[in-house]
Design a binder for these strands. Structure first.
Lengths: 338, 338
DNA sequence: CTGTTAGCGCTTTCAG
DNA sequence: CTGAAAGCGCTAACAG
């Protein structure tokens, strides 16, 4: 009907071959890194391709290759800046390696198996999970289909599912030690009522370290949601309980910011003079001058690198035993501690 | 070599057909919504598929369909919470409609044409751009390939490129009016030194509205980066300039938060008593009790809906003239104004 | 309603 | 180094 319609036909390797006066194979080889084509042929092909505006159809290519270069990212809690930072870094690194990230936001309510199943329909080359720990069954399915799964900050499952973790144990320990060394003798912890492996480990490590140092931490105050408001509410309850404390560890920065604001605005003892606060993650907001939060830092860029590395390793050794890469963390002292 | 290897063969519709004792077509039809299959056949197929763990290969499917259900999202400034909110909402809505979002983070340094080109290789069904306005040429290529492009908060280009915008003009107007009505007579604006269409429009509208009301706005203070620190620096320069002001409009909340923190911590006149501040976007942080920022709100959920709608409309009417959907905004009064 | 028959666009042996 | 031919997994006419 429209003149536009004529143009809208896709240009295929046949068209290019025809124009260049060569076979489709020659075209294919020209666009396959490391294939053997005569320089002269390649040039003819390239010229024709350029003239026609040809683009390789990656979908068709992956049909034969069995690998699509699509990589799924299953992500939860995208309201948490730490997560979006991870996602951005991972997607970038993926693109650099010529993969294409397909992003699947997932709430806890969503069934991870279903989400991963959708990904499988697209023959993804790999799946990166930063949401809740998925059921072992679906991971096994991925693995037996030759699709590597990389878990970020999740508990161990299966025998060939790689993980990359920040050192959550150390997070808790560093926080406890720092608070102790800075003079706190009545420490409290705000955790979250969510089934999160890393938050669990952080919290447990903190409590254990406290006990080891002879401190009896104030526990039992957990946010219903792992976010700013969750932190604020938990802080309110902690204050309302009347239990005295001069040091506070929040298992995530996101919650710590809420707690901090609540402390400041509710007439609680001033931070850091009579109350010290430490968070965990080092999200960008922690460094904002309005917060200046002391925290435990783990570099999302390193994390992203480790994830990609795990993925690539798994491609080359599909049956190697599961690996766990633990990334170091460090205390970043800012203004909420003395 | 390994027992696992035997399992790793992909299950195809042929396998299912064989087990179910039907033809491949029957299998295909069973998994094609709205195809005609006898109930009995369908059940046999479903049972066999389930037993085998069959999944449709969407890549193969799209090879015939010419539509992949993959939708590209080109996104910049992922450090800005407003952007990640947009991205999350859009991806979710896309998934609900059975599309799969492929996320391409892009800095201003990246060439949008290259990024979109990559997307085209994957036969995406559409492209959503929330980064810088892409060159018209590549958009034309998309359009002539039948791939709709939807621009979010970008200036107009081409004849069949749809856009969805928040009412940037009104943003600036509302801010100016609110400040005026709340008694400010010396207003200032902090904008950004970046080539952003929407920021430009907001700023211009603000200035014009001020002039119309007889106010001479303090201008010329722009952040080099469209972020928290950018806002803080600009505020510092504004204060250092010695030019008096009692009302401040920041073209994004992200910058507003930085400015606000700077004002508070630098001993500037107290907010909101002697200085009122308004931002724009209504990012989540604006509602945090520590900021409680008055701002201009635009619902990212609505925005996402409008984007999907534009996409779907374009599918049904490929050659319809370009549409522009402008979403209404409203003033959210919080604690930084009186 | 069902099976058969052609492809979708690309890669990849396999001869030459 | 190059072309011909087969096939990746699926869908879409087309007869039956």
């Amino acid at each position: 009907m429209n003149a536009q319609d004529d143009t809208s036909k896709q240009i295929t390797s046949v068209d290019v071959a025809k124009l260049a006066g060569v076979s489709r194979s020659a075209v294919s080889r020209t666009f396959t890194p490391g294939a053997s084509v005569a320089q002269e042929t390649r040039e003819k092909v390239l010229k024709a391709a350029d003239a026609l505006g040809y683009r390789v159809n990656q979908l068709a290519r992956s049909l034969t290759n069995k690998r699509s270069d699509l990589v799924g990212i299953v992500a939860a809690n995208m309201d948490n800046p730490f997560r979006t930072e991870q996602i951005e870094q991972i997607s970038r690194k993926l693109m650099e390696q010529n993969f294409r990230p397909i992003l699947m936001p997932a709430e806890s309510a969503d069934d991870p198996s279903r989400i991963i199943g959708m990904l499988l329909e697209y023959s993804v080359s790999g799946v990166i999970v930063t949401s809740d720990t998925p059921p072992e069954a679906i991971c096994q399915e991925c693995v037996s289909l030759g699709v590597p799964v990389v878990l970020v900050n999740k508990r161990k499952i299966g025998a060939t599912v790689d993980r990359v973790l920040m050192d959550n144990l150390k997070c808790g320990q560093l926080a406890a030690q720092a608070l102790y060394e800075k003079g706190c003798r009545n420490v409290a912890i705000i955790s979250a009522n969510v089934p999160s492996y890393s938050l669990q480990v952080r919290g447990d490590a903190f409590k254990r370290s406290c006990l080891e140092m002879g401190l009896q931490p104030v526990t039992g105050f957990a946010a219903d949601f792992q976010d700013y408001n969750g932190g604020a509410h938990a802080a309110a309850q902690l204050l309302a309980s009347g239990r005295p404390f001069d040091g506070l560890f929040c298992v995530t920065d996101f919650m710590a910011l809420g707690a901090l604001d609540h402390l400041r605005l509710s007439g609680a003892p001033p931070v850091p003079e009579r109350m010290q606060v430490i968070g965990c993650d080092d999200i960008r907001q922690a460094a904002w001058q309005g917060y200046n939060l002391t925290t435990i830092r783990q570099d999302t860029a390193h994390l992203a690198e480790a994830v990609i590395e795990a993925l690539l390793n798994r491609f080359s050794k599909p049956n190697a035993p599961a690996t766990t890469k633990t990334l170091d963390v460090s205390l970043i002292e800012r203004g909420t501690t003395r």
